[in-house]
């Protein structure tokens, strides 16, 4: 079941690897400042989209990234294959194919549901003003993520009233140089307007008419040196379906061995997901950049 997603992902990686070996397309952004890929495909941390524009392309340049991410939890496997591209350090477009594999979904809901929920996320982001490093004010970006849940049965059973939805978010990011124990400190705050249940895996809305809500997300990271960063993230989530949907958290280590490769490992705490408590586990994301 999982193999077909893996093969698509591998094809995607092959294409991007081709781009990597064309040096003419290397962007000029400072190492690590194009971040990683968050689970819905946007440039950011692991869970939270940041105001940064993806890829190493600066002004009059472009850059792209492809990544695969796995989150291993007691009752789930969450996988994302994603690409994003940034142009002129101004606009970003992204696409993510997400799969949530539920180990015993059919048994719990006693219905013939697919054990895998697949979701596609089409994203766009624009930098409104500011610069992550050089200007005194933070970088501020506006983004959207249009999500289509291809297996909406589980969400429908639990009370969601739509299989697609659009999140809007405003992100504020700043890298403070020589800020904490002489290290560079990255702070990010994101405010998301969303009607998604479990980020869309359990559909959208609940038919109450006041479906869409503002949620707060935050990230903090410290660069130990040019190649290594550690940090934490927090993502507030609504509980429209009255399932006790938890806020999400993680603590991450990010490795930037070169502009071509980004690796993020994390310990994630997704709390209660649908009917399953205590979903804590590991997170691993590997990204290549042109």
């Amino acid at each position: 079941m999982v193999n077909r997603y893996l093969s698509r992902t591998l094809m995607l990686l092959v294409v991007l690897t081709g781009l990597v070996f064309n040096p003419a397309w290397a962007g000029s952004k400072i190492l690590a400042t194009s971040g990683a890929t968050q689970i819905e495909g946007a440039a950011g941390g692991g869970l939270v989209p940041w105001a940064i524009i993806g890829g190493y392309g600066s002004e009059r340049e472009w850059g792209a990234a492809a990544s695969v991410t796995r989150v291993g939890l007691p009752d789930f496997q969450l996988g994302t294959a994603a690409v994003h591209a940034g142009i002129n350090n101004r606009f970003e477009v992204s696409f993510a194919q997400q799969t949530l594999q539920v180990d015993n979904l059919a048994a719990v809901l006693s219905s013939p549901l697919d054990g895998v929920i697949e979701q596609h996320v089409y994203g766009a982001k624009a930098r409104l003003w500011g610069d992550l490093i050089y200007e005194p004010w933070p970088q501020v970006s506006l983004g959207m993520q249009h999500k289509v849940n291809l297996n909406p049965a589980a969400g429908n059973v639990l009370g969601a009233n739509s299989d697609s939805g659009t999140d809007w978010y405003l992100s504020v990011s700043k890298l403070y140089l020589h800020a904490l124990f002489e290290r560079n400190l990255l702070l990010n705050g994101t405010f998301r307007y969303t009607d998604a249940n479990e980020t869309g895996f359990l559909g959208f809305g609940d038919g109450s008419g006041t479906d869409t809500q503002w949620m707060a997300e935050a990230s903090a990271g410290v660069f130990l040196n040019a190649n290594w960063a550690v940090g934490v993230e927090y993502r507030q989530k609504p509980d429209r379906l009255n399932l006790g949907e938890s806020d999400w958290r993680d603590a991450f280590v990010a490795w930037f061995p070169s502009k071509q490769v980004t690796v993020v490992g994390a310990y994630t705490d997704l709390g209660k997901v649908a009917l399953w408590d205590d979903q804590t586990g590991w997170y691993l994301s590997v990204q290549i950049n042109n």
């Binding site: 140089l177 020589h178 002489e182 290290r183 560079n184 040019a226």
Partner: peptide, 17 residues
């Protein structure tokens, strides 16, 4: 050292504008 590098960069970046 990384700390001294960051310190120098932090002092030069205000010249950006």
């Amino acid at each position: 050292a990384t700390g001294a590098q960051n310190d120098l960069l932090a002092r030069l970046v205000p010249m950006y504008d």
